[in-house]
Amino acid sequence: MILPRPGSAKGTDAMIGSMIEGLRTPSFQAAGPMEQFEVLPIIPLTLGNIDVSFTNSSLWMVIGVGLVIAFFFAATSRRALIPGRLQSVAEILHEFVANLVRDTIGHDGKKFFPYVFTLFIFILVANYLGLIPSVPGSAHQFHVFTTTSHIIVTFALALLTIGIVVVYGFAKNGLKFLKLFAPSGLPFALYFLIVPIEIISFLSRPISLGVRLFANMLAGHIILKLFAMFVTMLLAAPFAFKALAIAPFAGSVAIFFLELLVAALQAYVFAILTCIYLSDAAHAADH
């Protein structure tokens, strides 16, 4: 590292001081690591007393769902015997999720296939859309937004899954669904221990399911943002400090590729856990 006045502690201090002063400019202050998660209204709307404004979150949900619909519309419009490129992708996705559902739930899984498929595609597309860099200089509410980085969204999806599990479990097994909490074939005394554990484990399912996706997205985007911030901070620094920016830049590229993996993996994990919970509901009476 080449300093302007080597050996001069005073010079270095002054330089870092000016650098940090530069970073206190509003353009840097505005872009904290949490800025990307702010929900900003685009079109204010109310439904009764409830605020249902069309926000940047809504915008990216609509974009995601719109892209999925457009893709599947294009992929299934011809329905050729020998599939084209788009149709092949759609069929691979179909087969992938169908195999997942069949392997995990078994024969009963057929009626849950559309739900698991929708869930998987919705989360996958939302995760990937969130990884697109924003257009530089665009207005804040039009920045790229990761809808699945909000706990309320992921928790709602998790609750929906658990709700389906509970409703389907009771509808299929009746009160025998409660055997999920008390597996047969245990010594009587052990039930005092097992039943509370099973109940707590069941109750924690929607929390862990929702928080897992949320936390993965939150952590990934915060880390990406922090690395990006370090790049801009170092680029704003005077003299040869700028060259240091290559290190966090390389880091952010590496993290970006990790996030590409995590985005797909979390959608997969959400789908597979949904399948496992549904399988529990389908086979609760067999335990």
Binding site: R212, N216, V269, I276
Partner: peptide
């Protein structure tokens, strides 16, 4: 699956 469950603890 084990990866996701374990990762969750850290997250």
């Amino acid at each position: 699956l084990a990866f996701a469950l374990t990762e969750f603890t850290g997250l």
